[in-house]
Nucleic acid binder design. Structure first.
Length: 269
DNA sequence: ATGGTGGCGGGGCCA
């Protein structure tokens, strides 16, 4: 007689949030962690040197942390319920002083946090840096996807992939964040074997993740969807939902970005 | 509506 052992499936929640200063936003992050209880939260623009990272406050909520920060600009972190393993803070072969990349293995998932350069404007050296950075990251992600079954690449990509991710495609046509070379670079990331978790599911129209500071922008939903969760095929098959959480964007003294969350059915961690 | 704001740092840069 064959005894069939039931496999226990548990939900997994992954999230990403550009907090625009973890120092300022820490109370909001702590509240959000308690409310949403993600298994992993990827943070961008922490703007904190590592010795100032609020690891104790996060540990009090049961979160481990891996982080790669710098003063005033950039900075990424991964908050995880399970200890992060195989932490990496540099893209192999890419010389970059800016702290924009963090990878860690959490349970069965290789989690990668990205803060893609903004690019400033199409005629700026920062735009060239953005495209070169994305090309180098693409090459690296190819190796990560080859090495791991479940991969989630989360962060502020500073690219609105399609016109439906832009409140006013006409107004934004050709601008940084929506230009065709940036969109091609974004599609090249998908080409290594990743899918936009948000587009795996039916979604309302005009869902965005970033709005300019200034009250009119949010009130009129003048936003862009530039924060993304990309998943490998194995995770895509397990993805249950993906959504933007507008709650924190309406808080007092908010980040200009809202968190993006994806849930999964995954084998017991 | 790419700043009419915000963060950092203490002027100017970055987003």
């Amino acid at each position: 007689m064959v005894l069939v052992v039931p496999v226990r499936w548990v939900p997994v929640k992954l999230a990403t949030w550009n907090v625009n200063s973890l120092n300022v936003r820490l109370p909001q992050v702590l509240t959000w962690l308690e409310e949403q209880a993600p298994d992993v939260l990827a943070l961008q623009e922490t703007k904190l040197e590592d010795h100032r990272f609020p690891a104790a406050d996060l540990a009090a909520l049961g979160y481990h942390a891996a982080f790669s920060g710098q003063k005033a600009y950039n900075g990424v972190a991964l908050l995880t319920r399970q200890p992060p393993g195989d932490v990496l803070v540099e893209v192999p072969g890419l010389a970059d002083n800016q702290r924009r990349v963090l990878a860690a293995t959490v349970g069965p998932v290789r989690v990668i946090c990205l803060y893609v350069p903004n690019g400033q404007a199409l005629d700026s050296p920062k735009y060239t840096y953005k495209l070169e950075w994305l090309a180098a990251v693409r090459d690296w992600l190819k190796t990560e996807v080859a090495a791991h079954d479940r991969v989630a690449v989360m962060g502020d990509f500073n690219v609105a992939p399609e016109d439906r991710d832009v409140h006013s495609p006409k107004r934004w046509a050709g601008q940084v964040l929506v230009s065709e070379p940036e969109r091609a670079a974004f599609r090249a990331l998908l080409d290594v074997g990743l899918q936009d978790a948000f587009r795996l599911h039916e979604q309302p129209e005009r869902v965005f993740s970033w709005w300019n500071y200034g009250r009119l922008a949010l009130a009129r939903n003048w936003g862009l969807r530039i924060d993304h969760i990309l998943v490998s095929a194995a995770l895509a098959a397990e993805c249950r939902s993906c959504a933007v959480d507008l709650g924190p964007r309406h808080h007092e003294r908010p980040s200009d970005h809202a968190p993006v969350t994806a849930t999964f059915d995954s084998l017991d961690r």
